[in-house]
Design a protein around this nucleic acid. Structure first.
Length: 287
DNA sequence: ACCCAGGGTCGTC
DNA sequence: GACGACCCTGGG
């Protein structure tokens, strides 16, 4: 068992990081710690006073996995200072979600996870991803309990449309099936996407995948490819942006272009960060 | 029991 | 560009 301890780490609260909607595979334990699977490693994180303790096992360098995944080279104070100056709403939302960090998640896992997220709710999304991993992912034993890696494209490629439907993914069965095929056949080359410089070129590639529309593409860009200039618009973001800035009676009539433009003007290259603070704030504070 | 919404996308018009 | 359909589950 390896351990890695951080002291006085700025911008790091487990609840904020794991409950802000960016990831689906971290589960809170009874003692307040969280356990999750990062690629091939099961990791446990606990936060006590000013210490953050990571424990787990991995073939790769434990510290570098953590440093990378939790984006520990980035200083979030700079982001927060800039965004807090935008207006009182941002300042308020940042105060609420001060411990948020944007995780650098696996691209493939992120693609499938957000295809599943379409017109779905978070508890169900998490359950579906667990079932997919149990059935098609490799087993790992940690602390005498069983965990499962997220399935590789090759492993998931063994599932038929019907297999997926039987697992409870619903109408997303064909989308997952088709996207897996496209990735396996390299009609969309994930390694190439990761090397692209331009956000729009990356998005164009992602949009070729079945089940990936503008919203899902932007989530993938933000949560796996670390593009902070995107602004994923879902029902919650539309809601909070309308309440704060637009004030239309019927929030469904707020169009996406208007919101994209507003985000670009107000948040610019930090739009993705702003989106997370606003989303988390609005979702957690509304009954 | 019934209705509705949930981190949208797709096919069709 | 607008519109309905779409699996399933939890909550009112």
């Amino acid at each position: 068992m390896e351990k890695y301890i951080l002291e006085n780490q700025e911008s790091f609260k487990l609840e904020d990081i794991f409950d802000c909607g960016q990831c689906f595979r971290w589960n809170k334990q009874e003692d307040g710690s969280y356990i999750g699977v990062i690629k091939d490693a099961v990791i446990k994180v606990e936060q006590k006073n000013n210490k953050i303790i990571f424990s787990g096992e991995s073939d790769r360098d434990f510290k570098s996995i953590i440093n990378y995944y939790f984006d520990l080279e980035t200083n979030y104070s700079d982001y927060k200072n800039k965004l807090s100056k935008v207006d009182e709403f941002l300042s308020e939302s940042i105060k609420f979600g001060e411990g948020i960090r944007i995780l650098k998640q696996d691209l493939w896992e992120c693609i499938i996870s957000f295809i599943i997220s379409a017109n779905n709710n978070i508890p169900r999304i998490k359950k579906i991803i667990e079932r997919l991993s149990e059935k098609y992912g490799e087993k790992i034993v940690f602390d005498d309990k069983e965990y499962y890696k997220f399935p590789t494209p090759e492993a998931l490629g063994k599932a038929s449309v019907q297999d997926l439907r039987d697992l409870g993914v619903g109408f997303r069965d064909k989308r997952i099936y088709n996207t897996t095929k496209m990735v396996l056949e390299k009609q969309v080359d994930l390694e190439k996407i990761e090397k692209l410089e331009n956000t729009n070129l990356m998005r164009d590639e992602l949009l070729k995948l079945d089940g990936v529309g503008p919203k899902v593409a932007d989530c993938i860009l933000l949560f796996a490819l670390k593009r902070l200039d995107v602004f994923p618009i879902d029902v919650w973001v539309r809601r909070v942006m309308n309440d704060l800035y637009i004030h239309k009676e019927d929030e469904e009539k707020v169009n996406k272009k208007e919101l994209q433009k507003l985000a670009e003007e107000k948040f610019g290259s930090l739009s993705g960060m702003a989106q997370q603070y606003l989303f988390y704030w609005r979702r957690e504070t509304s009954a």
